[in-house]
Simulated scan of single mutants.
Amino acid sequence: MLDSLIAVFLVIATGWLLKARNLVSPSHWLGVERLTYQVLFPAVVIHTLAMADLRGVPVVAMGASLVLAILSVAALLLLTRPLLARAGIDGPAFTSIFQGSVRWNTFVALALAAGLQGRNGATLMAIAVASMIPLLNVLCVVVLARFANGKPMSVGGTVRSILYNPFIWSSAVGLAFNQVQWLLPSAFTGYLDILGRASLGIGLLVVGSALDLNRLARPRLAHGVAVALKLAVMPLAAWLYAGLFGVTGPALTMTIVAGAVPTATAAYFLARDLGGDAPLMAEITTLQTLLALATLPVAVLFLA
Rank of each mutant, 00 (worst) to 15 (best):
L135M: 13
G118Q: 08
L163Q: 08
L213W: 13
M153T: 12
L184H: 03
G157E: 11
L236F: 14
L236N: 09
R215P: 01
L136K: 04
T189F: 02
P166E: 12
L144A: 09
P166N: 08
L163S: 11
R146L: 03
Y164I: 15
R215D: 09
W239Y: 14
S161M: 15
G156K: 10
A228P: 01
L213R: 03
P185H: 05
A145Q: 04
P185K: 10
P152S: 02
S171E: 12
Q117C: 05
R215W: 00
L183T: 14
L184Q: 09
L205E: 00
T123M: 12
A172L: 15
L213K: 02
S154R: 06
L204C: 03
S131A: 15
A148S: 15
V233A: 15
L200W: 07
I202W: 01
I168R: 04
L110W: 02
L139E: 09
A228T: 14
V233F: 10
I168L: 08
A130H: 07
S171D: 13
Q179F: 13
S131N: 08
L112E: 07
V180F: 15
L195W: 08
V141F: 10
M125R: 02
W182H: 12
L195K: 11
L211V: 00
A176S: 14
M125K: 04
N178G: 15
L175N: 08
W182N: 12
N214L: 08
G208R: 00
T189E: 03
L112F: 13
L116F: 10
A122W: 04
V143D: 03
T123R: 03
A114W: 08
Q117F: 15
V233G: 03
V142D: 07
W169N: 09
A187R: 02
R160K: 12
S199K: 03
L116R: 03
F147Q: 07
N178V: 09
